[in-house]
Design a protein around this nucleic acid. Sequence first.
DNA 1: TTGAAAGCGCTAACAC
DNA 2: GTGTTAGCGCTTTCAA
Lengths: 324, 324
Amino acid sequence: MSKVTIYSIAEELSISASTVSRAFSRPELVKADVRDQILNLAAQLGYQPNKTARRLVTGVTGAIGLFVPDITNPFMPPLVRAIQQAAVERDSSVLLVDAEEDSKAELGLITRIAGQVDGMIIASPRSPSSVIKQAVGRKPAVLVNRVMDGVPSVVCDNTSALREAGQHLVDLGHSTIALLRGPSASWAAQRRAEAVRTWARKAEVSLIELGPFDASFDGGREGAEAFAASPATAAFTFDDLAACGVVAGLAERGLWAPQHRSVIGCDDVLLARVLTPSLTTITAPVDELGVTAVRLLEEAIGGATPESVRLPGTFVPRDSTGPA
Amino acid sequence: MSKVTIYSIAEELSISASTVSRAFSRPELVKADVRDQILNLAAQLGYQPNKTARRLVTGVTGAIGLFVPDITNPFMPPLVRAIQQAAVERDSSVLLVDAEEDSKAELGLITRIAGQVDGMIIASPRSPSSVIKQAVGRKPAVLVNRVMDGVPSVVCDNTSALREAGQHLVDLGHSTIALLRGPSASWAAQRRAEAVRTWARKAEVSLIELGPFDASFDGGREGAEAFAASPATAAFTFDDLAACGVVAGLAERGLWAPQHRSVIGCDDVLLARVLTPSLTTITAPVDELGVTAVRLLEEAIGGATPESVRLPGTFVPRDSTGPA
DNA sequence: TTGAAAGCGCTAACAC
DNA sequence: GTGTTAGCGCTTTCAA
């Protein structure tokens, strides 16, 4: 059995290949009964239009590139899933690239797949803007959790949720609060720190800035050391993984959350819910982030103007915060 | 500026397009100085061979499909990364598909991408063998953590590590031990249960089988209920996430690990290390699993005979187990 | 509404 | 070593 193409179908039906082609690519141009005939035979023969051939002539690949700096970061998998799901609905597939936390490699990896996709979604890149601009130049692209002039993006805006979180701490009687800063290359870390600072000034609480610390469990443990040595009774951390490290680091020093210290995470990853104590944190709307990223990318591919959207996070009090 | 092809380069250099083509696809067939000339001009013009065109004629896509049942399962991200990394070294890209735990959708999703890849790696599928066979029929494929006749696979074999873990419990004085079974559709769960049973018979400990429970945090909490109600003082769980649920579920009942009950996880995902208490578990050689999967797939694509490899897990005692 | 013909950019015989 | 010549399977004018 040779492979089935529009030609074999056309021959079988004594019609032209173009008609068969149309039956699949622009069905409305083909008379109904002919179309049905074609579709039936095709189904029977198990025919699938060859994407590669189609791609060669149309120039559209039907794939989107998804670039992540570190897939093992717990924030990523749900995002990847949301994007993947949205892509499937858009009828396109997802080419995944993981930079393995090597920001130097980001550019190379991005350009590497640029030729194989219609556009790309770049999540939380750590590279400097200039590098990203360069990578993004050739193809439509959408940034997630980072904004940059001229590039559409979707970010999670935690400003108001952080304010709520701060108020929550104040309500619990905390007045000296630590800010354990995240990596300085992280756009999100900068934004979160800024939001906390602004709130602290208004709320007239004493804010002690510590770090930067790595966005990791061990980074959190390091943070715990500084936190424990400070007069602060509560801390904002960069994300849930760091918060988890802080909780563990405090425990190593005989300090327990929430009895001795309160800890606030960010993102609400799986970890935040399964930890004991469960983490008071800020839920990121991952599904929406993913869906929006795909939508924006679709628009960008369609030639539309870059737009940027910000989705608010939601404050979730849980068990890692308590009375001062 | 029109796009640069082998023709524009050929014309510029007054040579034939085939020579330019060869300079990229089989450089050894082109005289050195001509080749250099071509490569230089190409670099200068920013020429990149069009993968789609190449693919159309050669039939190789340069992509491998990676199918995962649930990317949010903490076991997956490191595996995905390892596979992705190995693929990059093989100079091919990774098309990711996440079934979102919907085993009914597995077949459709797998066939969906079959046409766009040279072969596929199917990780821990939950579908019945017949379905997988069907999906796998058309393309070279490698299974991860599941074996099936006629399909090459790479699995993590925890038999001996589980035996060690059992001995570890016995050494700690446990003599009545629970087995909290994982999902019955999971091949790995069956294997692990079987290994524990075999060990228990030989070791003459009293084994109490409970479950099956979901491979999730909540599944673990359910398991904790049954565990707490049983006379067992220690438990094997299906994986670390379930173990985490068990620890939390026990805590809800005022039982603490390792003081009141001992808990053993499996896989050694990130969670196992950051939890308090850190989990006694079995480390899966994820990197090797990934690298091997890619190697086997490469061989299968090359037309080689299906082979199957099993890599042993390693027992790691940590803090969730203690004296009976 | 359908068919004929000309490519999309590249590779691979086959000749020179 | 290099050029010539056919396609790979599909879409898309352009005519009919």
